[in-house]
C-alpha cells in the first residue's frame, strides 16, 4: 500500500456505482454481440471463482503472497470492465495480472518464470513465448490507465482487530471473508474499510466455534438475518447506552454496532456490502467448475486465442 486512499486513483477512477458497472459491461456486450451469443459463458460470479482458483494455482507454484494475489484479482476485474473477455485468452490475462501484481507489491518474479509456470498450469492454453505476456502486460497497464496502486481491506482489519478484541479465529474468518470478496464486484463498489468492517461484522455473527471455523455455506439464510439484526441495532443504539463489558461475542457485535453509530461509515453501504457477499456465498454453491472451464476453453480454442 502506498499513498492516501482518499486521494487515490482507486477512489477517484476505480470506484463505481452498480449502475455504472452494469453500463460498462452492457456496452462491452453490445459491441460484441455475435461473440457473446456464439460463446455463452457462466455468470460473472462463477467466472470469478474460476479465476480465483486459477490464480491460487499459479500463485502457489510461484509462492506469491496473498496480498499480491488479491491485487491480481482486482486487476483482472478492472481489466474485464474495459475489455470483453471473449476477446482475450483468460489464462494469459491471469498470468499477466499475477506478474504485474507481484511487481507492484514488491515481490517480483522474472517473466520467464511466470511464463513457464503458466505453461505448466495450463499446457494446452498457454504459449511459452514471453513476449506474449509482455505484450499483455502493456495492454493491461493501458486499460487500467496505468493506475496500479491498490488499497486492500487487510490493513483496516489488522488495525481494527484490537479495537473489537477479535479472537484469532474471528480474525482469521474475517481475513478469509476479505479473500472471498475478490470474487465479487465489491472491490469496485466500496471503499476497502467498508469491506473490512463488513468482514468483521460477519465474522462476529458467524461466531467461529471451538471446533474451528464453521463452514460458511449452509447457513446463508440465518447469517443474513443475524447480520441484518446486528446492523439494525446500529440505528437504534445510542452511543454509550449499552456497552457492557462482557467479552462474549454478543457484546462484541454490540460494541461494533456502537462504534459504527459513532463513526462516519455509511451504514447503507455496509448493508449492501453484506448482502452482496452473502448472495455470493449462495451462488458459490451452484458453481460448476467443469462447466465453467469448458465454456472458457471453448472460446479460447475456437478463436485461436491461445496461439
Amino acid at each position: 500500500m502506498a499513498a492516501n486512499y482518499w486521494e487515490s486513483s482507486q477512489r477517484r477512477h476505480w470506484l463505481f456505482t452498480r449502475e455504472q458497472l452494469d453500463d460498462l459491461r452492457k456496452k462491452l456486450e453490445d459491441q460484441g454481440q455475435d461473440l457473446v451469443q456464439g460463446y455463452p459463458l457462466p455468470q460473472l460470479r462463477h467466472l470469478s471463482i474460476y479465476f480465483n482458483q486459477q490464480i491460487a494455482r499459479l500463485g502457489k507454484r510461484l509462492g506469491v503472497r496473498q496480498q499480491a494475489m488479491a491485487t491480481a484479482q482486482l486487476y483482472i476485474r478492472r481489466f474485464y470492465s474495459k475489455v470483453e473477455i471473449r476477446q482475450t485468452n483468460p489464462y494469459l490475462v491471469i498470468a499477466t495480472a499475477v506478474y504485474l501484481a507481484c511487481k507492484m507489491e514488491e515481490c517480483p518474479h522474472h517473466i520467464r518464470l511466470v511464463v513457464s509456470e503458466g505453461r505448466n498450469s495450463w499446457p494446452d492454453f498457454f504459449s511459452g513465448d514471453t513476449s506474449k505476456l509482455g505484450e499483455c502486460e502493456f495492454f493491461m497497464i493501458s486499460e487500467m490507465s496505468s493506475q496500479m496502486i491498490v488499497h486492500h481491506p487487510y490493513r483496516t482489519l489488522t488495525s481494527l482487530q484490537g479495537i473489537f478484541s477479535l479472537t484469532q479465529e474471528e480474525s482469521a474468518l474475517a481475513w478469509s471473508i476479505i479473500n472471498d470478496h475478490y470474487m465479487t464486484d465489491l472491490p469496485l463498489l466500496y471503499a476497502p474499510h467498508t469491506v473490512a468492517i463488513m468482514a468483521i461484522l460477519l465474522a462476529l455473527v458467524l461466531r467461529p466455534n471451538q471446533t474451528g471455523v464453521q463452514s460458511v455455506g449452509p447457513a446463508v439464510g440465518s447469517i443474513a438475518s443475524a447480520a441484518q439484526a446486528a446492523l439494525s441495532s446500529v440505528h437504534s443504539s445510542k452511543p454509550g447506552s449499552s456497552d457492557k463489558q462482557n467479552a462474549g461475542p454478543r457484546t462484541k457485535v454490540q460494541r461494533l454496532a456502537n462504534w459504527l453509530a459513532e463513526s462516519n461509515v455509511d451504514i447503507e453501504d455496509l448493508v449492501d456490502c453484506t448482502q452482496e457477499i452473502i448472495s455470493f456465498y449462495e451462488f458459490q454453491e451452484q458453481y460448476n467448475e467443469k462447466l465453467t472451464r469448458e465454456q472458457i476453453n471453448r472460446f479460447v480454442k475456437a478463436r485461436g486465442l491461445d496461439k
Partner: peptide, 16 residues
C-alpha cells in the same frame, strides 16, 4: 484525471 488510455484490443491478445 490522468488519462483513460487504451491500446487497441487486438494488440494485447491475438484475436482471430
Amino acid at each position: 484525471s490522468k488519462l483513460q488510455s487504451a491500446a487497441a484490443s487486438s494488440n494485447g491478445t491475438p484475436n482471430a
